[in-house]
Write a protein that binds this DNA or RNA. Structure first.
Lengths: 242, 242
DNA sequence: CGTGCCAGGTGCCCT
DNA sequence: AGGGCACTTGGCACG
């Protein structure tokens, strides 16, 4: 036995020790991390090959697998929650295999050396996260203070469905004209204009009178190209930050 | 000294030990992970509060900070590469502070207990990842085999710029008509139609003869709504998987 | 389950 | 630095 064990961490374990410990941790529903030299192969919606190097591998109890290098916020390879993990020894080396279905995707991590294997007990589910500054909050504010859009604006419905999808806020202005609001929590690109335009056109067809429908993009700010796109399509912009 | 040290891992370290070790690791450009009971506060583009619970915290040498719970593929809180970390003791508790600029964003992790602190040496930069099955590969295949689109199709340019943005592939058909291709590597939603439509309209204005321009969406498959949207806008679809 | 859409999206390339 | 867009986008809500 060459490995040293302190708490739930094994330093420089053999492949066999790591295999047993890792399999046990996954079985028990614990969170396990490995750090060491490995190669990574992914095949699924896309495919990738990653040559040897030191990486940090995390196996979560919910089936998530994350492979991180020393840089970047996103994992270089991963497997989503619900994936099935299995561990085995091949040619004396630890191999972590992860399988996902729908779509079928496969991730294989082959370790040539394991610096550390750690197992953590996460206990009961963690406290929930509350986020503020979302689009949902913008919507709430507009419903409470419709004059943020313009004097006389009256919201009539949220998520009103059209053949092209659901409109964020549906209402009418002081002159009784139909107004559609598309909310964006940050500076927007051209895609939002396409979205708003689809809704306006779909509603004009749906109400099929010669009704004029106003389409209004509500966001903190817009780019120049978006300003021109809005003008071209006869749409409007109201500045509002979340 | 109550903490036990094996390799580069401290089990149940005191706040002071953890503070020294973590600060040193960050300073040296090592990768550090903590696991323990903590609260997390974020404020920036949005804001969030996370109550006490066991989490896994990773500090990368490039300035990335990731806070993971026992579930989910994405971190529950994070800070992007380039952020500045600082560690201190407050009321005898370890506090990790991370600051980002442009936009100004702040992340604070307060530990009430540290189960483990580990420091890893990542060595030289890791081997690069090669991915296949991307949109770029679709483009390459079409350039090599234009008949994948239709007999007689001739690609003339890629990334040709229009007032609305760059077109994936620009070419002409057997009858000399201008053809625009918008490539998607997976089943597409309505947004892609908006994108293609913008390009077609922009080019029709740009070439400002009464030239007919064909817009073709190239993807593995499309939804029904997209099929209708394409028809409405006089656009076409060619099935092609990456 | 697929479809649609938000996200503190992130990352990459371009101007 | 800002704009535009791909991404194994991930995640959620809804039909």
């Amino acid at each position: 036995m060459t490995a040293t064990e302190e708490g739930s961490a094994l330093s420089e374990p053999t492949s066999e020790e790591a295999c047993d410990r890792l399999a046990g941790a996954i079985e028990r529903g614990a969170l396990a991390t490995l750090f060491g030299e490995c190669t990574v192969a992914y095949d699924g919606r896309a495919a990738s090959e990653l040559g040897p190097g030191k990486r940090h591998v995390m196996c979560k109890p919910d089936g998530t697998v994350l492979v991180h290098t020393d840089e970047g916020q996103k994992p270089i390879n991963w497997q989503p929650p619900g994936s099935d993990q299995s561990v085995r020894i091949e040619d004396g080396r630890l191999v972590l295999h992860s399988q996902r279905s729908n779509p079928d995707e496969e991730l294989v991590v082959r370790f040539t050396n394991i610096d550390q294997l750690a197992v953590f007990e996460t206990g009961e589910t963690s406290t929930s996260l509350s986020v503020t500054g979302t689009e949902a909050e913008m919507k709430q504010r507009i419903l409470e203070e419709p004059e943020l859009i313009e004097p006389g604006f009256r919201p009539l419905a949220t998520e009103r469905t059209t053949p092209a999808g659901a409109v964020d806020i549906f209402g009418e202005d002081g002159k009784g004209r139909v107004v559609i609001l598309e909310l964006k929590r940050r500076r927007v690109g051209p895609d939002a204009v396409g979205q708003l335009n689809r809704y306006v056109e779909a509603l004009e067809r749906d109400l099929h009178a010669g009704v004029e429908i106003r389409g209004v993009l509500v966001a903190p700010s817009i780019t120049d190209r978006v300003r021109r796109l809005l003008a071209t399509n006869g749409l409007e912009f109201v500045a509002l930050a979340p």
